[in-house]
């Protein structure tokens, strides 16, 4: 049995962080343009970036590029795409804009992110649901692709998420996945997904690209969150991962790797009650999730720190 007494509290804290972040952004001049909350991807010298080319002043450019790298050469024409941890909907917005997907469904634990997405993408082929990544509230076998970008590192029970990804996908569907992971856990994660019927088709370490994006963009992006007093400013500095923050150090460390993984679901597997990850691995996952949620803490905007809107 993997459910853990602290998990609900951790998830509530994570939802609160992102609800608070939405409040902070709502008070800034950049509210309607800020659709992504991730570290982004910067092509290195000599590298040909994936996907459509983006203008030099394209908002959230590095985050858009991260999605393009995650998608790679995957054909999403006519696809129904589910994104788990969709945040403010940037990835699904971009998939609709740049690929001919048929339908997008976003799930997020932060209610205010879901409200933002619904407001920004009212089209009938876009749906946004408030829900938990470890119990995704969508039917089985409905997705041609599941997307997950820089969100699973906060899940205390990641195997439940993996099991749900396998459940949601059609046979032949794609799992397009990226995150910052403890290097020791990548192999067990891939093995777990293999046991669930998902075959690894692509793996690439992009840590240097993500670091390059943080080094170049983090200080600027912090400005987009508006003016804050010193407590908020420190939190935002950490959140956006400026050079010198704990998150930046984690990126730079040999212990972690920011990796793109793509899988194809080759078979429907009925998962056993027994877990694939060991108790020790599950404890590591839970500990890292708690650490990530701590680092991403955003103070409540009701504390008087919210900038005038």
């Amino acid at each position: 049995m993997s459910a853990h007494a602290g998990d609900a509290g951790l998830k509530a804290a994570q939802a609160e962080n992102f609800d608070n972040l939405n409040d902070v952004v709502a008070g800034s001049a950049f509210d309607r343009h800020l659709r992504f909350f991730n570290f982004g991807y910067r092509p290195l010298d000599g590298e040909t970036p994936s996907g459509p080319s983006l203008g030099g002043a394209f908002p959230n450019r590095d985050s858009a590029q991260l999605l393009f790298e995650v998608v790679g050469d995957t054909d999403l024409t006519g696809a129904r795409v589910v994104e788990v941890g969709c945040g403010r909907g940037g990835n699904l917005w971009l998939l609709r804009r740049s690929y001919e997907v048929a339908q997008v469904i976003g799930v997020d634990i932060a209610h205010k992110s879901v409200v933002f997405c619904r407001d920004r993408m009212p089209e009938s082929n876009a749906a946004f649901i408030h829900g938990d990544a470890e119990q995704v509230p969508v039917g089985s076998g409905i997705a041609d692709a599941v997307v997950s970008v820089e969100t699973s590192c906060t899940y205390p029970d990641i195997e439940s998420f993996f099991r749900d990804v396998a459940r949601i996908l059609k046979v032949g569907g794609q799992f397009l996945y990226t995150d910052l992971h403890d290097v020791r856990l990548i192999e067990p994660f891939v093995a777990t997904l293999a046991s669930l019927g998902l075959e690894l088709t692509y793996q690439r370490d992009i840590t240097a690209n993500v670091q390059a994006s943080r080094r170049d963009r983090a200080a600027r992006q912090k400005l987009a969150f508006g003016d804050h007093d010193s407590a908020d400013a420190a939190a935002m500095k950490e959140f956006v991962g400026v050079d010198g923050s704990e998150l930046f150090d984690l990126l730079a460390s040999d212990l972690s790797s920011y990796v793109i993984l793509r899988f194809t679901k080759t078979a429907d597997v009925t998962p056993p009650a027994e877990r694939f990850l060991t108790e020790h691995e599950q404890a590591q996952v839970r500990s890292h999730a708690a650490e990530a949620v701590r680092l991403l803490t955003i103070p409540s905007a009701s504390g008087g720190n919210r900038p005038a809107s």
Binding site: G56, A57, R220
Partner: peptide, 19 residues
């Protein structure tokens, strides 16, 4: 003038001007 290549402007600059 191109925003990025000629002016070294990014999206934050562009959004400021548009706002």
């Amino acid at each position: 003038s191109r925003f990025a290549d000629d002016l070294d402007a990014d999206s934050i600059d562009l959004i400021e001007v548009v706002n």
